[in-house]
């Protein structure tokens, strides 16, 4: 059995639901924060994910980062050497979707690795009447940037753990590839 550790940056515009998704995932769906609280510093939440059929576990260090520019600038330095990324936008906000490109650039500038496991999450799908970003549009953008796309509704407890489990899995796959690579060198 192996225990892996991945630093995962969770980023996106403010009020898209980053902290809520993380809190739900942490509590296995039992804690939905009803009141909005602005994230001003980077919170690190750890959560262990079992990797099916391997006996291995991945401990995710989820870095819940402020979306507001003023606070983001102060915490940016803590993003050094990320191992995975989770970009979140609000499906009712075109702006939060179009800003994902900028968030992606910011995270990529913190790593020297050519590949970073990542997911794009469209949250708040329960607000279907106000939807401004179509699924196909988000899927295409995600695919063109090597990200896996997920839609979630934190409010309806839908899919909230899928993006994080997918990240843990990709990170685990990278580790296995790396170990195979080491073996081949000896």
């Amino acid at each position: 059995m192996g225990k892996l550790s991945a630093k995962c940056i969770v980023a996106g515009d403010s009020t898209v639901g980053k902290s809520t998704l993380i809190q739900l995932f942490r509590s296995d769906g039992s804690h939905f924060p009803k009141n909005y609280s602005l994230t001003t510093t980077m919170d690190v939440i750890t959560k262990t994910v079992q990797i099916p059929d391997s006996g291995d576990i991945v401990e995710l260090f989820l870095c819940d980062s402020p979306g507001k520019a003023m606070f983001y600038e102060m915490t940016e330095g803590l993003w050094d050497q990320p191992g995975a990324l989770c970009l979140v936008f609000d499906v009712t906000s075109e702006t939060s979707f179009s800003n994902c490109g900028r968030w992606l650039q910011r995270i990529k500038s913190k790593t020297t690795s050519p590949y970073l496991p990542g997911v794009l999450v469209g949250n708040k799908t329960d607000l279907s009447g106000r939807r401004a970003v179509e699924k196909i549009q988000a899927e295409e953008w995600a695919a063109s940037h090597g990200l896996e796309y997920f839609e979630t509704s934190a409010k309806e407890l839908e899919n909230f753990d899928q993006p994080f489990r997918a990240l843990a899995k990709s990170f685990h796959r990278l580790y296995q590839e790396r170990v195979e690579n080491f073996k081949s060198l000896l």
């Binding site: 059995m1 192996g2 225990k3 892996l4 550790s5 991945a6 630093k7 291995d56 991945v58 260090f61 050497q81 191992g83 990170f171 580790y175 790396r178 170990v179 080491f182 000896l186």
Partner: peptide
């Protein structure tokens, strides 16, 4: 500081050139 029991740290000192220790994420 890392543990994967397929590649434990004891591999560093076992004198076997075929074995190795792996770190399992983050520095």
């Amino acid at each position: 500081t890392s543990s994967d029991d397929r590649h434990p740290a004891e591999c560093i000192i076992d004198g076997n050139p075929e074995t190795f220790w792996t770190t399992t994420g983050m520095f």
